[in-house]
Computed example of a mutant assay.
Amino acid sequence: MSVSLDQVDMSILGYLQANGKESYSEIARCLGVSEGTVRSRINKMLRHNVFEFIIHTNPNKIGLDVQTIIGLSTKLGMQDEIASRLQRFSEVRFVGAFSGNHDLILQAYFRNNEDLVNFVNRDLAQIDGILNADVNVELKQYKDSFSYLTSE
Rank of each mutant, 00 (worst) to 15 (best):
V3M: 02
V3E: 05
Q7W: 03
V8I: 01
V8E: 07
M10K: 11
M10N: 14
M10I: 15
I12K: 10
L13Q: 02
G14I: 03
Y15D: 04
Y15F: 10
Y15I: 03
Q17H: 03
N19H: 06
G20Y: 01
G20L: 01
K21F: 15
E22T: 06
Y24P: 12
S25R: 11
E26C: 11
E26G: 13
C30G: 10
C30H: 09
G32T: 02
G32N: 14
S34G: 08
S34P: 11
S34D: 05
E35G: 09
G36F: 02
T37M: 10
V38F: 02
V38I: 01
V38N: 02
R39W: 11
N43W: 15
M45E: 03
M45V: 07
H48N: 06
V50H: 00
E52G: 08
F53W: 12
I54G: 03
I55H: 05
N58W: 12
P59Y: 09
N60T: 15
K61A: 12
K61I: 12
G63K: 12
L64A: 09
L64Q: 08
D65K: 12
V66S: 00
Q67M: 15
G71Q: 02
S73H: 09
S73N: 12
T74W: 02
K75I: 09
M78S: 15
Q79F: 11
D80K: 13
D80G: 14
D80T: 11
E81T: 10
E81S: 12
I82W: 04
A83N: 11
S84Q: 13
R85V: 07
L86G: 13
L86F: 01
Q87D: 14
Q87K: 09
Q87A: 08
R88I: 08
S90L: 14
R93H: 05
F94G: 03
G96H: 05
S99C: 15
G100R: 15
G100E: 10
H102Q: 06
H102E: 14
D103S: 01
L104D: 13
I105A: 05
L106T: 04
Q107D: 04
A108G: 03
F110C: 04
N112I: 13
N113Q: 10
N121G: 02
N121R: 09
N121V: 06
R122F: 14
L124M: 09
A125K: 07
A125P: 13
Q126C: 12
I127H: 10
G129Q: 03
N136W: 04
N136M: 05
V137T: 08
V137H: 02
E138H: 13
L139Y: 01
K140I: 06
Q141H: 14
D144E: 09
D144G: 11
S145R: 00
S147T: 12
S147K: 02
L149A: 10
L149D: 06
L149Y: 06
T150R: 04
S151E: 07
E152G: 10
